[in-house]
Amino acid sequence: MTNNRPHLLAVDDEEINLRILEHYLSDSDYQVTFAQSSNQAWDYLTNADYQFDVLLLDWVMPDVDGLELLKKAKELENYKHVPAIMISGLSAPSAISKGLNAGAFYYLTKPLGQDVLFSVLKAALNELSSIRSLVENQDKFTDAFSLINHGQFNFRTLHDVNCLVESLSSMFPHNINTPIGLRELMINAIEHGNLGISYQEKTHLMEIDQWEEEVERRLLLNENTDKNASLNIDKNSDRVEITITDQGIGFDWEEFLEIDNERITDPHGRGIAIAKLFSFDDLNYVAPGNIVKVRIDLRPQ
């Protein structure tokens, strides 16, 4: 099925919950396919006529629960990087952490709010767009970047980050998670480091859909026009070590190295922890927090 609108797969065994989602999404720009069981959803996921851009998965279902369905979907080549949003009445922090650690992009608790749903869907589709761009461009600079042993790159804007990450992704042709993690750390260096956007400010900006506009506005301020961040590469035969440095005052990074239960439903704040889990073999910040070092082991393929 081809359609220019983003295609969502919504899975829930209770019809009332699917009707709520249908009501929320009926006048939106999304195309939605509904499944009332994991088995029905799996039939859609393995049908070549369907390609979904976001998965909305209920956790508790009688046949196969949403977490198991997510794990199975991630094993499919064309759904390896498609974001999944878990929806559940389970609001215990341990349950939320379990979903995120399994690879869910986000976790929403019932009853579901329409504004929160649309905000999370937009973030998920932005993430998917970035990943698809990385995948499409991953082979573009493979020969050139395979020759690099040492190098430094300076970056200042979100556009710089996207360009650099797309180029660097060719160094890791078998692991798209590494450039995704680098992108997270580089954006953190710009927004929080050089531009001083606080956690609370970013939460508000994302809620009103003005984060990117605020980043661009602050980049134009006189006190920020000369601020750059840097990315240094040190590569040998068995590993790549990357250091990212910004010109900020640092931050209390230790609380962001793990998925924090108190921030777990915020629209951001999990990127560093996810990167630590899935993107790198080692990640460490250097006090006061404006320098982060990561290591990627080069494994034979």
Rank of each mutant, 00 (worst) to 15 (best):
L231R: 09
K80R: 14
F153T: 12
F155S: 04
E241C: 14
H192R: 15
H159L: 10
Y79S: 10
R299L: 04
A189H: 08
L76V: 13
V292P: 15
S237G: 15
E223I: 14
L45S: 12
N137I: 02
E216F: 04
F251H: 15
A229Q: 01
K98I: 10
G269T: 02
E75G: 15
S119R: 15
A124R: 03
S129N: 15
H23Y: 13
N224K: 08
P6R: 06
V120W: 04
I291Q: 14
F52D: 05
F118M: 06
L100K: 06
A48E: 15
D209A: 14
V215M: 02
E191T: 14
E214F: 09
F141L: 10
I87L: 01
G250F: 03
L21E: 03
W42C: 12
E213P: 03
V82D: 02
K74F: 07
K72L: 02
L70R: 02
L164D: 05
Q31N: 15
R183L: 02
V292H: 14
Q200P: 07
L298R: 04
R270I: 12
M1Q: 13
D209F: 12
V11G: 05
G269I: 05
T225N: 06
Q152F: 06
D13L: 08
L195E: 00
W211T: 10
Y24R: 12
S169C: 00
D143P: 00
T46G: 12
R183D: 01
A73C: 05
I180L: 04
A102N: 05
L164E: 07
V292C: 14
F280A: 09
N137T: 06
T109L: 01
F141K: 12
N4D: 08
H81G: 00
I180N: 06
L220D: 06
L56V: 07
T225H: 00
V135Q: 09
N137D: 05
I176C: 03
Q200Y: 11
K276R: 15
F256M: 11
L134A: 05
